[in-house]
């Protein structure tokens, strides 16, 4: 298995590290592998419990993420959060 960082998985097709941005997963945007073009889309209807847990985690850690982003001087995930529509 390819070594991956937290927040990424080995691509199910090409095994390269595939980042899974939580904001994209929650909003249902397709996640595209830069290596092979594979598209993954979260299935809201069969992952309700998992996505709810993920959403709670995302909400609860939002402030910390924003602080980290502003400390780093970038928009980062904090900016992505504002685009999220749920």
């Amino acid at each position: 298995m390819t070594a991956t960082q937290p927040g990424e998985i080995p691509c199910p097709s090409c095994s390269r590290p595939l980042p899974l941005p939580v904001a994209a997963v929650l909003s249902g945007q397709p996640i595209v592998c830069a290596g092979c073009g594979l598209e993954l889309t979260a299935q809201r209807e069969t992952s309700r419990e998992a996505l709810d847990a993920l959403g709670r985690w995302y909400e609860e850690t939002g402030a910390a993420r924003d602080m980290a982003a502003s400390a780093a001087g970038t928009g980062g995930e904090g900016a992505a959060k504002k685009q999220r529509s749920r």
């Binding site: 199910p12 997963v25 993954l40 299935q43 992952s47 998992a50």
Partner: peptide
């Protein structure tokens, strides 16, 4: 394990 389900086309 809490699993999230995704779909892809193959």
């Amino acid at each position: 394990l809490q699993m999230a389900r995704f779909k892809r086309r193959r």
